[in-house]
Amino acid sequence: MNTCDNAKAHFSDYIDGLLTPEEQAQVEAHTAVCAECRTVLQQVTQLTERIHTVAAISASDAFDQNLRARIMGTFPADPKPSYKRTFTFGFSGAAVLAALTFFVLSTFDGSNVETVPAGISGAAPKAQPELIRQDALPHPSLASETLKKDSLKNSPAHVDQKIQLVGQEK
């Protein structure tokens, strides 16, 4: 290991403590006599340690709700082209989301609320309740199918009876 390139090729393993004692001694022998490599090794070591401490980024508060809406938009129901679902969902997506929120809220009892995790299921509930009226749904059957398909609803057993009634229309 007498060239600079050779030594530098081992810097990462040196920093990570992955060299054999012999290899480690070789790196140290080179950096002892080569000022340039010594500086590089010191700086790479410092930078690597510094990168480990970069503050982590978190997902925003709206993330769960956005993901939920996107999944519902992508998987409104089983694909049956004759239903023109893709088209109608564009108009009704917001209403469906609102309706889902309503049903989620209206079907929880206290113990449910307690056990619902602060995940996606818990992220939706704060929509404005005044917007949530059943008659605001242009396509109730779509809404019901969406609900039944909704992966984010964690407790299908709590889906309100009236949803199933609407679903039975088709």
Partner: peptide
Amino acid sequence: NYAFDLLVKRYKD
């Protein structure tokens, strides 16, 4: 589908 919720919760950050 609740398992999906948990995976999202675990991995989003």
